[in-house]
Nucleic acid binder design. Structure first.
Lengths: 201, 201, 201, 201
DNA sequence: GATGAATGAGTGTTCATTCAT
DNA sequence: TATGAATGAACACTCATTCAT
């Protein structure tokens, strides 16, 4: 990894723990093992580091949603995702992914500092997840697996549960394997309840 | 309000928006309209301001939970709370209350900065609400309003919904009347769904 | 002891350890168990405390030298002072006396800070002791105990030894009983050598 | 001289006059004609400046004692040092040397402020001089110039005289040429007395 | 690509002092 | 006598940034 990338990853790592302001150029330079003034060869200023991180994140998310949309819209794919696939692709590539998880933490703790951060937080922690998750249930109703009313109800319930679990286990303290496992268990057991409801309703 | 209290409220107000580190003693003094050095007549140092805020909050919460516990445990009170009562007492005195709401925001954005803040965040955003909310549903089952299994299921669902709504509408951007209303509507409509489930189940 | 005196003694105690500047009004007030602003009822300002201490010391020394001069000039008193008398009166009331010892330390560490302190240091650590000590030997020569030349020589040697011992044992680290004893032993053994010289010379 | 050295010398110069605490970083920066913040490029903090000065001094003293020991132990050198040599090498390179003289003043006025300074003061103002000076007289007795008993007696007397003269003339007020001359005269005349004693004894 | 040296603005904090009560 | 409340000036120190090399 070249110096520029190292600066980005090190910065995000520290921003997500201590916030933008509390991380100094000294800290960043120290963690990358270069001198402070060398930072300015790679980035215009501190804000430029933050902007680059955000840009990188948005591009990353664009790639991820493209993949997800393709998967969800693929009409052949009429059977629900297996738990393993969910864990690997949906959870593993987003919620558990170190880069994304750190960005979520960063957006959460910086949301009140600027309008820009506020809107990123709103979009990536609530709007987009809600759209994607409820969208998946509507797709199931279009595929005849559940009724349209169930889709609406289950979609909202799923989003509530996922959001709560995310804040409670993935954006709270250090991200440990234990927390990831608890998150998966609770998510899957909730899924089972929904499935029960679908069969009974 | 005396100077000491003004310092506490002004500090929390700014801490909740910009975080502890980004708020300077100069800022606090300016907002209270005294000089920086005067702050140190009332508080040992900046950390002491924070400690005093946390102490005040914990005492406030102790008072609130005492009231809530008394209400929930009151055996005469076998009928469920009206929406108005819920809005006034439960939401209004905690989730919407400016002091409590600011503290929640503050704990959220400072949770990674210290173990102390981390445990406060865990306790007051997740543990205590879960205990109180699921407790209320168990009380209903003991009063024969719902079954024990329903109590367990509804309690969890309610907590998930409330947590999601709290993060989405009450700890996200400025706390406006509009957001409070949206929060209430969604909470009450969720309640209606639960009630429907209770009658049908 | 009234508050004013307490302030003086507490101040000197701390001044002698940490120097005038390093001792704050807060420190003094704290050690006397009053509030800072109360200091200003008793003294115009911090400098006034120092001035009062110096005045007290000069009056104290005036009293001491009067006594000493009377003793030395008393023509009846033709026999040399006993070691015990020397220890009690000369060492005990000046070099070992807590007030005087602290003042000597204070003058030593503050001598470069002001011309006033410089001249006090010069007078009370060198000039006056030299005058008194060599004076005592001249008195012995006038009393025929030693020759005039011996008086000159012994006086200087005695002053050198006493000055060295004072700086080495009484104005160096904490003033312990052990150091006082070492000081006495070395002073007396030097006295014995002088006596030997007087008899042989 | 580079900035770092300038800071060290300027700092010691002021420390020796006003004491460590009374000299501000502002003062040091001003005397070196750089800005306060630039100090921190060269030194971690104010204490680091002091530590560097002490280290420099201890290394300097190590070099000096090596030279002195070699000279004193040189068995060929059976004739006593000439006054000129003494003045140039012993006095000139240590007692009169601006760096060493300032350090002695600094240790004297800071001795009560920290255990570190206390032990430096004890070592460099008393222990080491006593060892070196009495050592020189023992060397003379081993070379048959004086008796062993004389060595003991003269060594102590010489050390007392030198110590007194040092405190009285070299660590008292400004170090002027006049004081240096007085110091030399008194030291040499004392030496003459000792020589007389050696020949007569 | 990277660094040594420097800086203005700002940080939390301590200081001696004042003054009304 | 003593204090509560306040303050301007100073303190040691950190910050993001610049620029010549």
């Amino acid at each position: 990894m070249d110096t520029k990338q190292k600066i980005l990853y090190s910065s995000l790592d520290m921003f997500a723990k201590r916030g933008y302001n509390a991380v100094s150029i000294r800290d960043i330079a120290g963690s990358v093992k270069i001198k402070e003034s060398s930072i300015y060869y790679h980035f215009k200023n501190k804000q430029d580091i933050l902007d680059s991180i955000v840009k990188k994140y948005e591009e990353h998310i664009d790639g991820l949603t493209d993949v997800l949309n393709t998967a969800v819209n693929d009409t052949d794919n009429s059977k629900p995702l297996s738990f393993d696939a969910m864990k690997t692709y949906f959870f593993g590539q987003y919620l558990f992914d170190p880069f994304c998880n750190k960005m979520m933490r960063f957006m959460m703790i910086e949301q009140f500092n600027s309008g820009k951060m506020q809107s990123l937080y709103e979009r990536y922690l609530f709007e987009l997840p809600e759209k994607l998750q409820t969208g998946a249930f509507f797709m199931m109703s279009r595929n005849g697996i559940i009724s349209e009313q169930q889709a609406r109800q289950f979609g909202q319930a799923f989003f509530s549960e996922m959001t709560m679990l995310t804040f409670r286990y993935l954006l709270n303290g250090e991200l440990t394997e234990e927390k990831k496992n608890t998150f998966c268990e609770k998510a899957f057991s909730f899924f089972d309840i929904l499935k029960g409801g679908a069969e009974n309703g």
